[in-house]
């Protein structure tokens, strides 16, 4: 379990990490999301004892990384942003070195063999690391973090440089590892975080701007009270018709004649109200064919942009803004 309490890191006058707190429970995968320079890597470096914090505390299974670094570090497998590889060694030599460095007790041959199988580097295990491609280097880096089977894994952008097939493999590997490890994973690939993580912490300019369950985060920010609808018929007539629905707050024509005679509408209902049935019934009662209806739930990309820049594609509704502010002030 990882506990971060009021962590602050200052580089001279620059505040890299500003009073952040979060926890990752056992068997939980926590996604750490943020634009470049947001403080993700700094936070991870502090968690692993590579850097010290200016203020605050980081606890690994209850052990303070600054108070008892050797004991705390023994619990962590760390894959930094740039995998820490000795380029002049072969993969196997390197893993054996890491094995000894971490003072592992597991049977060396079977343990390292298992890890090589897991991250699929068995076929290159006798090659010099210098000559490997970026994807293989990344996987050797991941293998290094797994040596000793530490209960806590901290992975800084683990899928960078991998091809799509490998990305899927590594993701499912991380998901599997998450069942009996505490994993913190940083990324700016949003679908990845959404696919893999139980919990998401979004960080921007050193501050946590969102910290929630992945699905909830998407749900809370957009909710299901916004719909995009396409119907055939006179746009203004349809607008008037839909406006009569009791819980409807706003109807806007997005575009007329998206297809011949078909218009697209943005509907906003009152909070917590499901108007889908009403919309369909009203349109049917007047014989306006309903051609499409989808909830305009934000994708994680949009949430991310919205939270980090306070804006999506240049226009944000007022109530959405309030919603975000509520979230970020939490």
């Amino acid at each position: 379990m990882i506990e971060v309490k009021n962590l602050t890191k200052r580089y001279g006058a620059k505040l890299a990490v500003d009073n952040i707190s979060f926890t990752a429970e056992e068997s939980e995968i926590l996604g750490f999301l943020g634009p470049n320079g947001a403080g993700k890597s700094t936070t991870m470096n502090i968690l692993t004892g590579y850097l010290s914090s200016t203020e605050g505390q980081a606890l690994i299974n209850g052990i303070d990384i600054l108070e008892d670094p050797v004991k705390a570090k023994a619990l962590i497998g760390y894959l930094p942003e740039q995998p820490p590889l000795y380029l002049d060694m072969t993969v196997m030599e390197y893993l054996k070195f890491v094995y000894r460095l971490k003072k592992c007790k597991l049977p060396i041959a079977s343990h390292l063999g298992e890890i090589c199988e897991l991250v699929k580097i068995t076929e290159v295990k006798n090659r010099v690391i210098k000559n490997l491609s970026k994807g293989y280097k990344q996987r050797v880096g991941l293998a290094q973090a797994l040596v000793g089977n530490p209960p806590v894994l901290i992975l800084d952008e683990p899928t960078v440089g991998l091809d799509p097939k490998q990305i899927i493999e590594i993701r499912s590997l991380i998901k599997r590892l998450g069942k009996n490890h505490t994993v913190i994973l940083s990324s700016h690939i949003l679908p990845e975080v959404q696919a893999v993580c139980d919990k998401i912490v979004i960080i921007n300019r050193g501050k946590i701007v969102a910290n929630d369950n992945a699905d909830k985060l998407v749900h809370n920010l957009s909710g299901d009270h916004k719909l995009t609808v396409r119907a055939e018929g006179n746009a203004n007539d349809i607008k008037k018709l839909l406006s009569t629905i009791p819980d409807m707050r706003d109807v806007r024509i997005n575009k007329e004649n998206v297809e011949p005679g078909v218009s697209e509408f943005f509907l906003t209902a009152n909070d917590g109200c499901d108007i889908r049935r009403d919309v369909s019934k009203r349109l049917a009662s007047r014989n306006y064919p309903l051609l499409m209806m989808k909830s305009s739930e934000l994708t994680l990309e949009e949430i991310f942009l919205k939270i980090t820049t306070g804006d999506i594609y240049g226009h944000v509704d007022e109530d959405k803004d309030k919603n975000t502010n509520k979230k970020s002030s939490k």
Binding site: Y50, P80, Q82, L101
Partner: peptide, 8 residues
């Protein structure tokens, strides 16, 4: 050094 300094 990220390996050696974060190793136990």
């Amino acid at each position: 050094d990220q390996l050696t300094l974060t190793a136990p």
